[in-house]
Structure formats: structure tokens, C-alpha cells
């Protein structure tokens, strides 16, 4: 119940943004005929979304978004709060299913397979498309059990030694192994915020997903922890496809290959990251990255 309230509350700020914008930026009014500019599509698409619309009850949160996420690409999604970037991200592994009033329309495909096919099973989908959340949410279990949770529920291993190996490699990949190797069996909630978030990343990659979705993974962390996670993202992109929602433009600039700019539920511009931050195609993008609103 509470989750529903939370989520709708997240959508509500749209109105606030709307009024704020109208004061500062008159051209923000006219979004009706907006066409996405830049290069939303790639040849090596891992996931491809076309004309996606998302509603919370009768309130529309996402308008006609079409976008590809390429194989082994890091795609950053930026935009003012309430622009729908998190909502869009949560559609990609159907986390929005947990919210009763949320409905998704359009075509969303993972390697050509429609992920909103009613016959499709969300459990293996989420094993393929993992997610890291805004606030570190380690389970109230030991560090080891946190990482081993995914492999255990999916039945990936039969032997203890195999599990140990997965836990170790996942923690290594998440850059946490050295810090926790001596206390694998102490509670995951006892770690610092940054460590907790890396633990959550380790927990996600222990299932060997193909795509990792990250919803503002550093927003609750200090700059040093943030730097570590960013490094990690760069390394992970060798093996995984990553979509990251971020509030920080610097972070998007540092870690991503392409950047998508969302505004009031619409996708305004998608371009090579460098281009977005140096010479954006759209006026709204420019206004945002130069800090005129956000």
C-alpha cells in the first residue's frame, strides 16, 4: 500500500515542475509537437522501445518515447525531476508491475522479444535485466547471503564451492571483495552507504544479467563512493549493457556513451554524450545542461 502512495507521490511533482518552468522558460510550454532529435536508434540494439506511453491511473507520465539501448553500451538518461526517466527505466524490467495503477503501452523489446507480452514471464526477464535502486537496499542478511540470494533462487549452482566462487567474482567485479573478504558473514546492513550500493551491484551481477538498469545509483552517496561506483560502471560495460538514470550531468558525461534527455515525460534528444554536453541539438537540452532549470 505504502509503495503505491510513494510512487504516485513521485509522479506528482510534474505539476510543480510545470509551473516552475512556465515562469522561467516560456518555450517549455510548447511540447505538443515535440519530435525526438539526435540518434535514438542503433544497429546493435539490445533493447528497443517504440512509442512507449505510461500512465499512473489516468495521469500520463511518459509520452511516445522511442529509444534503443545498444549492446554493451552505457546509456545515461538525464532530465529535471519528475521528467519520467525513472518511470521509463522501471518499465524496462517491468518493475512497474508492482504498482497496481501503472499501465504501459507501446512496444518494448529485449533482443526482439516483446517484454510486455502477457504470456512472457517476468521472473526470467528480471534475471536477464537486473536493477540497482536509488537507495541502497541490502537485505537484512549477511553480505554473503545478499550476493548468493540471486543464484540461489534461480538455482544457478548446486555446490557450495560454485556459490562461493560466484560470490567472490561478483564482489570482485563490484570492487568490494578486498573490503569485505574477512567479514562475509556479517550483516550487509552494517556496511557504509557506498559499500552497500556496491553490494547491491554485486548482488545484481551475481545472476549474470545481460542488462543492468541503474536508477540514480549514486544519489544517496558521498563523492568518494560515487567515484568508485562510476569507475565500476565503466568496467562493467565490458560485459553488460547498462542504462543509468542520473541526476548529475557530470556523472552522465563521465560514464555514458550516449545520453538521452527527458523533459516532462517526453524524450527530447538522444545523442553521443560528448555532443549532448558540448553542442546539443535541442534548445531544451541546452537550457538544462547550462543550468537554466533542473
Amino acid at each position: 500500500m505504502e509503495a503505491i502512495v510513494d510512487q504516485t507521490a513521485k509522479v506528482d511533482p510534474m505539476n510543480k515542475v510545470n509551473t516552475e518552468l512556465s515562469k522561467e522558460n516560456p518555450e517549455a510550454h510548447d511540447l505538443s509537437g515535440l519530435e525526438t532529435v539526435g540518434i535514438p536508434f542503433t544497429d546493435t540494439a539490445k533493447m528497443s522501445m517504440r512509442d512507449v506511453n505510461v500512465f499512473y491511473a489516468d495521469k500520463q507520465a511518459i509520452f511516445d518515447v522511442s529509444l534503443d539501448i545498444g549492446q554493451n553500451e552505457v546509456l545515461a538518461m538525464i532530465g529535471p525531476s519528475g521528467c519520467g526517466k525513472s518511470t521509463f527505466l522501471r518499465c524496462l524490467n517491468r518493475m512497474n508491475d508492482t504498482i497496481d495503477i501503472c499501465s504501459v503501452q507501446g512496444s518494448l523489446k529485449l533482443e526482439g522479444q516483446d517484454i510486455y507480452d502477457p504470456k512472457l514471464d517476468v521472473v526470467p526477464l528480471r534475471a536477464r535485466v537486473g536493477m540497482v535502486f536509488q537507495k541502497p537496499n541490502p537485505f537484512p542478511k549477511s553480505i554473503y547471503d545478499n550476493v548468493a540470494y540471486g543464484p540461489r533462487i534461480h538455482g544457478l549452482v548446486n555446490r557450495r564451492t560454485d556459490l562461493d566462487e560466484i560470490v567472490e567474482t561478483s564482489l570482485q567485479k563490484a570492487g568490494l571483495w578486498k573490503e569485505v573478504r574477512d567479514r562475509l558473514h556479517s550483516p550487509g546492513t552494517g556496511l557504509s552507504g557506498g559499500q552497500q550500493q556496491r553490494l547491491c551491484i554485486a548482488r545484481t551481477i551475481a545472476v549474470s544479467p545481460e542488462v543492468i538498469l541503474m536508477d540514480e545509483p549514486c544519489s544517496a552517496l558521498d563523492p568518494i563512493a560515487t567515484a568508485k561506483i562510476e569507475e565500476l560502471i565503466a568496467e562493467l560495460s565490458e560485459n553488460f549493457t547498462i542504462a543509468i538514470v542520473t541526476h548529475s550531468m557530470q556523472q552522465a558525461a563521465r560514464v555514458s556513451h550516449r545520453t538521452a534527455y527527458f523533459h516532462l515525460g517526453k524524450l527530447v534528444e538522444v545523442n553521443e554524450t560528448e555532443k549532448v554536453f558540448t553542442n546539443p541539438d535541442h534548445k531544451l537540452t541546452e537550457a538544462y545542461i547550462t543550468g537554466r532549470f533542473g
Binding site: 546493435t44 549492446q71 554493451n72 514471464d121 521472473v123 526470467p124 534475471a127 536477464r128 534461480h154 538455482g155 544457478l156 545472476v207 549474470s208 545481460e210 560485459n239 553488460f240
Partner: peptide, 20 residues
């Protein structure tokens, strides 16, 4: 830019256990 060699393997296992 090649998919991780583990990937197909993982999904097979996941799908195998799904029914249970």
C-alpha cells in the same frame, strides 16, 4: 563487444528451474 560467454548458460538454468 561480444556477449558474456556465461549468458546463454545462465538463462538455460533459470528457465529449467522455472517450473519448479
Amino acid at each position: 563487444m561480444t556477449p558474456s560467454p556465461k549468458t546463454p548458460n545462465t538463462m538455460d538454468v533459470v528457465n529449467k528451474n522455472l517450473a519448479k
